[in-house]
Every structure is written in structure tokens, then in C-alpha cells.
Design a protein around this nucleic acid. Sequence first.
DNA 1: ATACTTATGCGACATTAAGCACTATTTGTG
DNA 2: CACAAATAGTGCTTAATGTCGCATAAGTAT
Lengths: 213, 213
Amino acid sequence: MSDRIIPEATKRRMPIYYKYFKSQQEAGTKRVSSKSISDSLDIDSATIRRDFSYFGELGRKGYGYNIDSLVDFFSEQIFGKTVKKVAIIGVGNLGSALLRYNFGGNVSNSMQLVAGFDIDETVIGKTIGNCVVYNMDELNHIVKEKNINIAILTVPKESAEEAKIAIENAGIHGIMNFAPVKLTGHEGLVIHDVDITLELQSLCFNMKLSRGE
Amino acid sequence: MSDRIIPEATKRRMPIYYKYFKSQQEAGTKRVSSKSISDSLDIDSATIRRDFSYFGELGRKGYGYNIDSLVDFFSEQIFGKTVKKVAIIGVGNLGSALLRYNFGGNVSNSMQLVAGFDIDETVIGKTIGNCVVYNMDELNHIVKEKNINIAILTVPKESAEEAKIAIENAGIHGIMNFAPVKLTGHEGLVIHDVDITLELQSLCFNMKLSRGE
DNA sequence: ATACTTATGCGACATTAAGCACTATTTGTG
DNA sequence: CACAAATAGTGCTTAATGTCGCATAAGTAT
Ligand SMILES: NC(=O)c1ccc[n+]([C@@H]2O[C@H](COP(=O)([O-])OP(=O)(O)OC[C@H]3O[C@@H](n4cnc5c(N)ncnc54)[C@H](O)[C@@H]3O)[C@@H](O)[C@H]2O)c1
Ligand SMILES: NC(=O)c1ccc[n+]([C@@H]2O[C@H](COP(=O)([O-])OP(=O)(O)OC[C@H]3O[C@@H](n4cnc5c(N)ncnc54)[C@H](O)[C@@H]3O)[C@@H](O)[C@H]2O)c1
């Protein structure tokens, strides 16, 4: 059943599964069952088995799933075979927080923060976290040199469109956009928006619904 | 049809609609139709009409929807009648970025960042953005004084559980959690997790699917 | 006024996702 | 080695979500 028609709902759960597998692996767990995953993630066990079945037969009847195999398999599904190299575009408040954070060190075997870029002379040349902040002029060149695949866009909304074009031209195909503007790119550019005010509104609405209040 | 049985899928779209209405209102738009919303948000126009219909008859046939009414109506649905007061718990890299950002000033008629809290003497007493950073000891007292409804939790993962308990005890019912740990609270505490590494994985997976790559 | 256009709200239908329940298989144990 | 326990994988049922089509009301132009 591994012909590439993976339902949207399954796609959405992939990162959630992966996060769980990693945390279990770190905790020393060797095997899991659809039941044990279900208990932790609050997803029906049948849904979990069905989700996995789209990728082939990942488990063994009567035993469950081996955690190391799951991590390896999902890692390749999500990231591919090579480590993804990530750059921060716009090293201001949020960009520098992300550089210092460096994903909490957690994801470093599949994703790596490798550079920052800005137009402000006062940050260019600095090293934040363990990344150098380069001038935007150097984007093309450094992207090739360091094999950067993904850009995290943390510039003011006014500059977002301009920065997006630079990113696209440098040959990067994935953008995680924190600026509160709608960006569209050429066919083949994948843009993922993260909007913190949207998340807060979502929280407010859930509070309203669950508590009247 | 305004008996409170709003489908999950509709709930998820509420903040997206609201964001769009606000942006249109700011741009001076006076009316919209399900068709025009559909074109911008890439949600089927029938889905939009159906979503709105759960809240009653918001539009007029042959005319569409009045933007100001929509903004007012959705604002009350999402936030309620009073402005939501928000505090940042843990004023480190991310917490201080959020304080300086202050939601880009956008949401200030429905949400307001009013204070920061920390345990580190070197930040306590400072003013960041336009908020004072208080000692965590003062949480109970300031929450009452300023009528704080929501906490944004940006402490290290090791302190998250402890901070959650303090927040809960102070009488706050909504937490937006940035720490990469699973928090659970009493009945009536609404927790919304934001995990940036999860979002990045989601981006990677979409790149993989859409580009083979 | 009258005809024509626009666009809602809603019932009916279609698609997608979730969950049940059964089968087949492996595990682990005595 | 035999057998009970565990658990994956899946056909089928049910629930949730999305879409179509149209009657109807409102707006617009002549
Ligand atoms: N700070 C937050 O907590 C926060 C939260 C959510 C969203 N955001 C969004 O993230 C973005 C950044 O926010 P911030 O508070 O870090 O802003 P900031 O002003 O502190 O930082 C922006 C940085 O981008 C740089 N920049 C400007 N134009 C550029 C360009 N064309 N190319 C490269 N770099 C450029 C600036 O020099 C600056 O260093 C904004 O769009 C904001 O709406 C911020
Ligand atoms: N920095 C980022 O870009 C980023 C991105 C995603 C998630 N996160 C998560 O957000 C959290 C904060 O990250 P950070 O980089 O800002 O860390 P940080 O260490 O810079 O800041 C944490 C702050 O919390 C304070 N603190 C510690 N214990 C506390 C307590 N019990 N009560 C109140 N304050 C307390 C510390 O004094 C410090 O000021 C972490 O859990 C991290 O995993 C950070």
C-alpha cells in the first residue's frame, strides 16, 4: 500500500509522530505499539496503524514497532537523506532569539542552523549562537557554499516580499515565514507561515468556547 | 442556526477569517463576498458561507458581508467583550523578543501585552517594550491588579511545569506554551502549544512531497 | 417600475477521515 | 514446542467535512 497517496490528515500528523518517537528514543524506549502511542498522543490506535500503513508494513504483529527503525524511517520521510541546512533572514529580535536557540540542539542530526543574513551593518559580521551573520549581498554565494535548503524569514513585514525574492533567487525552495504578510512564490517554492497572533486568537477562542467566560 | 455546535474545522478557520477581515478593514474595504474571501484565503466559498451560517445570518443576499460588522462580530466571538490582558512568563531570548514586538501593535484593541515575569534579578525591574518585568513572586498580586487573562510561557523546558503551576494558581485560565514539553492542567485551563521545530518539520515534509527533491 | 445581476443560505450529495471489529501473525512463556 | 497473549494490518461502518445547485432576496441599471 505504499503508492504515494497520503491523506492530508495523515500528513499533518507526521511531525507529531516524529516528535514523539524522538522523545521516546531519548528516554531509552526500545519498542512501542499503536496502543502506547495512542495513549500518549490521544490519537485512535486504528488511525495510527492506518497512517503507518500508507508507508508500508512498518511493524511486526504481536510485537509492535521498533523505535529506532521508526525514527530512521520517519526522519527520511520528513527530511530526506541529507541534513537540511537552515538560514535566518533578518537577525533582529526574533531572528537572533532563534539563532541563540538553535532548535534547542534537538534536531541537529536532521536540521542545522548554519547562517544568519541581514542588511544592518551593526549585526553583520557578528556571531550569534554558533552562526555568523552575513550581508544579504552574500546570500547567493553562501547558500551555494553551505548548501542551504531552508530560510526562516524574520524581517519586518515591509521587507518580506523583497527578501522572499532574494531567497527564491538564491535557489532556496522552502521558507518559514514569521512576517504577518501573505507571500506567494513560483511553483516549487514551499512557504509555511507561522503567525503568533493567529495562535493567540486560537487560544482565546478555545477559552471562550470551553469556559463560556 | 446559532445553537453552539460549531464543527472543529470551522473553529480552526475562525482566526484565519478574523485576520483577513482586519487586513481588509485596514485597507479600507467596505464589503466582501464569500467569493472574494475564497479567492484570498483559498477556502471554498460554500465552506465559508456554511461556516458563517453557524453563527446566524451574517450576510445579505445579493450584497455580501459588511466588513465592519464582520470584524465586530468575529472579534466578540473570539475575544469576548473585554480586552484580553497577556503576560510573558520568562523574559529570555524569546520572551523579550515578544515583549518588544507587542503583537506588532495590531491586535491592541482586543489583546494587550501588559507585563513580564521572571526569576532572574538581572531582568526583573527592567522595562521592555512598554512592559515592566516583575518578580515571579508578584505574579498573584499583579495578575489580580492588572486583570491578566493569558500567559505566554517562554521559560526553559525544565521550569515549564513549575511555572505552569504558578500561572494556574494565580487564576489565569489560558496558556500559550513555547516550551517543548507536554503540559497538562486542571479542568478549565486551556493550553495551546506552539512548537517551532514541529513547524519546520512540517515545512520539510511538504517540500519533500511537493518537490520529490 | 422592470429586467437583470449578484450572492446568500440551505438542502442534498460527495468526499474524506475516523473508528470498529476481525484476521493473521509473531512473541514470549512455561 | 505448544499455546496464550499481544498487536499489526485492513475491509467495512459511521461520522465529519466539503461541495453543488438552486430558490430567494437584495442590489443595480435602464
Ligand atoms: N519579535 C517577535 O516576537 C515576533 C513575533 C511574531 C512575528 N514577528 C515578525 O517577525 C518579523 C521580525 O520581527 P522582529 O521583532 O525580530 O523585528 P526586528 O526589526 O527586530 O528585526 C528585523 C531584522 O530584519 C532586518 N532586515 C530588514 N530588511 C531586511 C532585508 N530586506 N533583508 C534582510 N534583513 C532585513 C533588520 O535589519 C532587522 O535586523 C516581523 O515581521 C514581525 O512581524 C516577530
Ligand atoms: N529562543 C527561541 O527562539 C525559541 C524558539 C522556540 C521555542 N523556544 C522555547 O522557549 C523557551 C525559552 O527559550 P529562550 O531561548 O527564551 O530561553 P532563555 O533561557 O533565554 O529564557 C528563559 C527565561 O526564563 C526565565 N525563567 C527560568 N525559570 C523560570 C521560572 N520558573 N519562572 C519564571 N521565569 C523563569 C529565565 O530567567 C530566563 O530569563 C524554551 O523552553 C525554549 O525551548 C525558544
